[in-house]
Design a protein around this nucleic acid. Structure first.
Lengths: 217, 217, 217, 217
DNA sequence: CATGAATGAGAGTTCATTCAT
DNA sequence: AATGAATGAACTCTCATTCAT
């Protein structure tokens, strides 16, 4: 009768699925789903090809797991935002965008948008899941913040539904760039400067014209 | 000496390559390069599999041709913009962004950015070519316009290098969306409204505080 | 109504089949039947691929024609030998072997044995035809000559059936070499010296012990 | 750390490459390289098509392995000959020729010369390798033996370089025949009788005229 | 007659998936 | 649990063959 696995081993075993999805995420982002061979995934995770099938039924199941795993932190990040939710819409937007970059865009998870975009056509139900659970929730957060700003008279009366996408698009674009062209055509853009410039630009664009300094009230 | 083929046949022969790259573009954008079978490309173009090889040496060569063909209109559009170049930087940016959407983003060519982004890792030299010929040139145009606005005191002193990307990113994002999630998770965004909102937002964000309309001089 | 073709054209037309089989022979010998593309044959003959099918029903038919054409000179050479048939078996063998080399082995036709040997397994009925029409007749000639030498007491009483093959084998071997290894591993063998040495060797080997020159009668 | 595979499995794995090259040799010799389908090779070896690629990178690599494997016994046979090397050149030649037939020509390996000759044009570097490692070494052995016979006054002063080829050519020819025409046009030649007749013929041809028995000294 | 664009069956090669060990 | 040899369906690519011009 085999003894209970040692703690080290148990931990290893329980960590396996994530080690595998981590390896898969990196490769799926780099080469795309179809062009990634399971051999490579296994090799990168330091296991044999057959082992993958102990944890995932198929390549497609692995893909779904990768997305599901990648989605959780996004949701958690979003919920954290709600918790910190300041009343000040400007601060809220700043926090949201900066946090998204810090916790998602600039990390390994920053490849998820590219991957999901690339494969949406091949995995519509995964795309739908991702849309509902991540995109729409994120947009709702942004919309709420913008609406609040409008209500408070801080922001111009823009269409909050459109603005949500406009606020996140440049960050996703940067994440996509880092996971595509950056490897071959590194432009010298400093991510943080880019994020700052974006936040600065859109907040300026949203704000109602403040009275000019020195202008008559 | 062989007789020249009749006009009908000749015309067919000359039109073939584009018919094939058109079909390939659509499928590459929809499913990705690796997941697209040449059978499908041929079928979509109404020819047999073997015919593809009369015009392209390999699947990879077809990919390169697709990109090369897709790049030409982008360059031409850019040059057209220069020709129309108004002195007014605001008008110039409006025209540039709107034209990009009208002539590239909203057309079949709007799939090129997604495709190129998805495959940059697998075709670095094509990505490099695309970056040099399309991206950097486009950014240069935008940078110039922004710089001119700054020089004229119309725009705030932002970093033109960063702003270029920020100006185009939301349009690319929209094009990407239309070529990925739109098929399964159509959000109700009206493209023109989105483009308008974007232009409005960034121009407001760029402008130095204009005197409020109706405000006392 | 088309005018009668001019003589030049007519001659061209009638010569076509042979131009085609000549091209085919060279390539079949060089690369083998399966590895030779009809494109190449056509190009070498200076016609288009389709033209081949005006003269031959299929690649296989072309192969058969190549062999049939290559066989005729061998038969004619054999018949010429019979006509010149000296009574002296030694002279007869000399003439036969030297003529075979001059008229067959050293010419383009020298590739036929290699080709036929390589393809015998794939075209057994052609091989059978070749065996009957060329090999067996040639061997019969040799056998007859050898038998005559034995009958005349000039040759030792060897088995004529075996000796026939032994007499021609080295010449075929040389022809094969020239159509295979010679291109990449040219050995410095002088063909005529080789033929001479062979004739010298086998005639010496066949002869009954002649009185030593200068020996007392 | 993975457990070592059991002996049965390991033995299979180690034996595979040779099983595959054996199957390939037989088919390459029978039909030629280009006309042999990998399906057939796999089927003959009792494996699936894909398994071939676990052991050989490509059809061409399989070809090279077939030759390399086929070459080893030839070299070993040659070395064995050197070991047995009698001082008597006549015996040496007898042994060499007979052994070549017994150990090479009459076995599966007897197809190698035909195969190599047929494919020399398509694989020049393999042909070069084969020439250096097998042909030239074999010829050197024969040349040495003949030269020794000449030096001892046993053989006539022939050109040893030419004679080497002349000695082996009829045996190669017989091997070639058995791997080509024999299947369709079996002539009734008894191989051993042929080998004997050849050895008898050439040794007689080489020898200086012995004094006739009973002839006056 | 001659052409060469077009075809599609077939071959080489890849790789997700299985399973005996 | 883990392995990796084996599989075979599927894909890219080739080329003998056809046929409209």
């Amino acid at each position: 009768m085999p003894a209970e696995p040692t703690t080290a081993r148990r931990r290893r075993k329980e960590a396996r699925p994530q080690e595998l999805t981590d390896a898969a995420l990196a490769l799926f982002v780099e080469k795309g789903f179809a062009a990634t061979r399971l051999d490579e995934v296994a090799a990168r995770a330091g296991v044999s090809k057959g082992t993958l099938y102990l944890y995932f039924d198929s390549k497609e199941a692995l893909f779904k797991a990768v997305i599901r795993e990648g989605v959780v932190p996004a949701i958690e990040a979003g919920e954290a935002m709600l918790a910190e939710q300041a009343d000040d819409p400007v601060t809220l937007l700043r926090i949201f965008l900066q946090s998204w970059w810090d916790r998602i865009g600039s990390t390994e998870l920053g490849g998820i948008p590219k991957l999901m975009m690339s494969e949406a056509g091949n995995f519509p139900e995964v795309a739908r899941y991702y849309d509902e659970v991540v995109i729409q929730r994120g947009l709702a957060l942004l919309r709420t913040a913008v609406q609040r700003g409008i209500d408070q008279g801080i922001f111009r009366p823009v269409d909050p539904a459109l603005i949500g996408t406009l606020l996140i698009a440049p960050l996703i674009h940067l994440a996509n760039w880092r996971n595509s062209f950056a490897a071959c055509c590194g432009n010298g853009i400093d991510p943080q400067a880019y994020v700052d410039a974006h936040i600065d630009l859109v907040l300026n664009g949203l704000r109602v014209q403040p009275s000019l300094p020195g202008a008559p009230q």
